[in-house]
Design a protein around this nucleic acid. Structure first.
Length: 595
RNA sequence: GCACCCUUAGCUCAAUGGAUAGAGCGUUGGCCUCCGGAGCCAAAGGUUGAAGGUUCGAGUCCUUCAGGGUGCGCCA
């Protein structure tokens, strides 16, 4: 028995990482100068390692106690006796700095992470709760463009995060498969449609038809009328219109699924707007009967409390239903069928007003649960281009002439990954090169998107996306592959009972602190619906390990001359690998074992 | 015109109201006899758009202004 304190800790089988913070909170609360809850909220990590492991700023106490904050800190410090977990308390000005028992910390951290009976990072935060996530939701008959990447990748990451936190998660792809655009596409196809071209590249061809007809429609009112006519026929159940619509939908979904498959995304439900059309008549009838909806300028609308906000249009003056009507029906149907506690709409920030209207309309219709709907707004992809010699930013879209097909971007990133593999493996890659390139290219694109704060507009920059160095998906994947490689070099099974006192290097403690943070990071990510939090965390973790690893003279992991230390370090490597791998999977990126 | 969002290093972005504002890219200079160089280290780069205010403490909260973006009844 090397250290009695370690023995004591071993008996606390269900100890969690939070023990360290709760011990600190308890010790300061015991002084009677501050409440436990307040202390917990104030607890921070010092900016520099030598200042301590946890810190409590005492400024807020100064006013209440009418004393100099530095004096208060000193007073508290004096009353705290060292314990098994907290070995020392120091003051620096008004800051109270705590130093933990690092061996105990490292033991607890790595024991928990390596415990296969527990899913480290997972919590029961969402047990018994259901969250519905509405994301991606592309429009039928329109190409899947780079703009869709944000909602698709964000929604998928949120899906994984909420699931990790114990929620029941239902993903819904609210396909844009109804509305005026179908009048346009059917009219265009009837006019000069080519079945062969359609079968060859459905989305590309349908988009062409749409763009072309749309442009001519702006100048020719009769074309507009024809399109409106086809939409009416579609809504009235006309057989020919319905048949064409079905064909366009089937071909489009097939194209979308090919992209989703590459991104590793599956939806629990593909329920487009057309599915909810059957409920809209009843909703409108009831809204009118209840006096919630009124006639206005030939349309049937729900007026908003704030007169400056335009009303929700349930039925347009031409008799067709609106986008809002189908979303109202969708929300009600989902509430009846999924019984959600929360529903997230992962949709661009430009639709903020739209969702505010939707929620208010649902509340007016008597659905109190509408307060559980949240618009998880994200920024736009912007394109930079020169106009009259100046760089301007503009929304990337078909109309502006900037057209980037998502699949083309994926292909380019994958091709780039393949080139890098060829450079690094002149004698051939030991494994499935195509598969590796696919995972790396997609990792680059997915991470390149998610690392941005979601509300920020993203300027699409090839240089950044295709640069696999630095803060990138491939950097994290590479770090993971290297961790795997070290374990492969070690060869044996990872042992969990090791001499933790041998992990006494400050860098090892820093790695443990980061690794131990995963559960807290996942909670923060979910609460803010902000996967960029998890992204920064993973970069910090990988960076801490890469730094440690590079100093081979001091930190050689596998060292036959020192078997006991090797075992301890191998456990640490395995734990970092587990945390990094878990984080990457949540983001929707493949953790590579070799690349 | 009105509403909402954004503005941090040359570029792209970080920073639960807390200590000296951090990364990456790019630039310059280092580091493979040894577990994978898609890595690591270092240098240079800042009046956090401007001015007030709240606070013990503001990149962060409030007000005004400037610049940019987005939206504003029958597109989805």
């Amino acid at each position: 028995m090397r250290d009695k304190r370690d023995y004591l800790l071993q008996e606390q089988e269900d100890a969690t990482m939070l023990n360290f913070t709760s011990e600190i909170v308890k010790s300061v609360a015991d002084t009677g100068l501050i409440e436990a809850a307040e202390a917990e909220a104030l607890l921070v990590t010092p900016p520099k390692e030598d200042m301590g492991d946890y810190a409590l700023p005492c400024f807020t106490l100064a006013k209440r106690l009418r004393k100099n904050p530095a004096a208060i800190a000193a007073e508290i410090a004096e009353k705290i006796a060292p314990s098994e977990l907290i070995v020392r308390v120091e003051t620096q000005g008004a800051y109270l700095n705590f130093f933990v028992n690092r061996t105990a910390f490292v033991r607890q951290c790595f024991s928990e992470i390596s415990d296969d009976s527990k899913d480290f990072g997972a919590t029961d935060h969402g047990r018994g709760k259901t969250v519905v996530i509405d994301y991606s939701s592309p429009n039928i008959a329109k190409e899947f463009r780079v703009f869709h990447l944000r909602t698709t990748v964000l929604g998928h990451a949120l899906y994984n995060i909420f699931r990790a936190l114990g929620y029941k998660v239902v993903s819904v792809n609210h396909l844009g498969d109804w509305g005026t655009q179908f009048g346009v596409v059917i009219a265009a196809f009837k006019e000069k449609g080519d079945r062969e071209a359609l079968d060859h590249e459905p989305l590309k061809y349908l988009t062409q038809l749409y763009v072309d007809y749309n442009r001519r429609m702006a100048e020719d009112e009769s074309l507009r009328e024809t399109a409106r006519g086809w939409l009416r026929k579609l809504e009235d159940g006309d057989e020919e219109a319905h048949e064409l619509w079905r064909l366009f939908c089937d071909l489009s979904i097939k194209d979308f699924k090919r992209v989703y498959l590459r991104l590793g995304i599956e939806f629990d439900h593909y329920l487009g707007e057309s599915f909810y059309f059957r409920f809209t008549d009843e909703i409108i009838r009831k809204a009118q009967a209840d006096g919630v909806a009124v006639e206005s300028q030939g349309a049937i609308v729900i007026k908003m409390d704030d007169e400056d906000i335009p009303p929700v249009i349930l039925r347009k003056s031409d008799g067709a239903t609106g986008y809002h009507t189908r979303d109202i029906a969708a929300a009600i149907w989902r509430h009846e069928n999924f019984g959600f506690d929360k529903m997230l709409y992962v949709v661009g920030a430009e639709q903020k007003l739209y969702f505010r209207q939707l929620i208010e309309a649902l509340e007016k219709l008597g659905h109190g649960w509408a307060k559980n709907l949240e618009h998880v707004a994200h920024g736009l992809y912007l394109d930079t281009r020169e106009v009259d010699g100046v760089q301007v930013r503009a929304k990337a879209g078909t109309r502006s002439g900037f057209k980037v097909i998502l699949e083309d971007i994926i292909d380019d990133a994958v091709a780039r990954a393949e080139r890098v593999i060829d450079e690094n493996y002149p004698n051939g890659f030991p494994g499935d090169k195509k598969q590796a390139a696919e995972a790396i290219g997609i990792g680059a694109i997915v991470f390149g998107d998610l690392k941005n704060g979601r509300i920020k507009d993203v300027v699409f920059d090839w240089e950044t996306v295709l640069n696999f160095k630095g803060e990138s998906g491939p950097y994290l994947q590479y770090s993971h592959a290297r961790l795997c490689s070290i374990l492969g070099k070690y060869g044996g099974a990872v042992e969990r009972e090791v001499d933790f006192a041998l992990l006494d290097d400050p860098e090892e403690f820093a790695i443990a602190r980061l690794a131990a943070d995963l559960p807290r990071i996942l909670l923060r990510t979910a609460e803010a619906c902000e996967p960029s939090v998890l992204c920064s965390y993973l970069v910090a973790l990988a960076g801490a390990f890469n730094k440690y690893y590079t100093d081979i003279s001091r930190h050689k992991v596998v060292d036959p001359a020192n078997p006991a230390r090797t075992k301890a370090r191998v456990l640490m490597v395995d734990c970092v690998r587990r945390v990094l791998g878990k984080g990457l999977k949540i983001l929707g990126i493949s953790p590579m074992e070799k690349m």
